[in-house]
């Protein structure tokens, strides 16, 4: 059914892209807010480096620390907005209109999410990385770009699967804003949004590398800055891929269970 209705998902993709283009300001504000938060971290670390008099802290020079936060804010903007949509659809009852269609509801949401993601990438992330690259030397080579592409693929898959799992909870509890917020806090902190994961105490840092969140910003930025060697990158990708597979199985099982659970007033 998925292959037979491929054109329908393409239709959702194009429609969402057109809609998103009309609301560019909203997307720009999300990216600007993240860049503003990064700017605060730049001031913080400038003061810390100046006070300590050190050239490097935890392997980061002051310039690489600046680049880390700006690159992180750009790359982490590339997540999908799936769970809030599921909650709204469940809350309003509109979800039934999607479920009776001969297409998969999760795949429809994924197509829409991909369109928003493409817009964010082309309008903000790519120009942003190019601007940062013109100021700070980035590790741009064919091999690093190939690794980065795989990392981005794993990131998008992980972010979507985590968001789906949270979104499916809406079928059981209706309101999931609290869970969405807890998860976004966890993701920001555990993916290195507040502090590079390498600066955490050694034991905690090693444990964090075994979680999926290291593939949601940290590994990509470290690859761009050339701060991770190839074997460490491959190890992080392998961990991310294993998590993607596990979360995919869980999400599939949960969706199957959820479809059986759905009941609506009137039928």
């Amino acid at each position: 059914m998925v292959l037979r209705n491929g054109h329908a998902y393409l239709g959702y993709f194009i429609t969402t892209l057109k809609n998103a283009l009309s609301y560019r300001l909203g997307y720009a504000l999300v990216v600007l807010s993240k860049l503003g938060t990064s700017l605060v971290m730049v001031f913080v670390w400038t003061a810390i480096y100046a006070a300590s008099g050190a050239h490097e802290i935890g392997g980061y020079t002051v310039v690489s620390m600046y680049a880390y936060f700006f690159l992180f804010s750009l790359i982490s903007s590339m997540d999908m907005i799936i769970s809030p949509k599921i909650q709204n659809d469940v809350d309003s009852g509109n979800v039934i209109t999607y479920l009776v269609k001969p297409i998969s509801y999760p795949l429809q949401l994924f197509s829409e999410g991909l369109a928003e993601l493409l817009l964010t990438f082309l309008m903000f992330v790519l120009p942003g990385v190019i601007i940062i690259g013109s100021v700070v030397p980035l590790n741009i080579s064919w091999s690093s770009l190939a690794l980065l592409s795989i990392e981005m693929f794993v990131f998008i898959a992980l972010a979507a699967l985590i968001d789906f799992l949270i979104g499916f909870l809406a079928f059981y509890t209706t309101r999931i804003w609290g869970v969405i917020n807890i998860m976004s806090f966890l993701i920001i902190f555990l993916s290195g949004g507040i502090m590079p994961l390498g600066l955490f105490p050694s034991g905690i840092s090693k444990a964090l590398m075994l979680l999926p969140f290291q593939m949601m910003g940290y590994t990509q930025v470290e690859t761009l800055l050339g701060l991770l060697n190839v074997s460490a990158i491959m190890q992080n990708i392998a961990v991310g891929a294993a998590w993607t597979f596990a979360l995919f199985i869980i999400a599939l099982a949960m969706w199957t269970m959820t479809k059986k659970h759905i009941t609506f007033a009137g039928g």
Partner: peptide, 14 residues
């Protein structure tokens, strides 16, 4: 946690 890590790895904010 962030403030604790900053003060753990550096002399902190002047």
């Amino acid at each position: 946690a962030s403030i604790s890590i900053i003060y753990g790895i550096s002399s902190g904010i002047p």
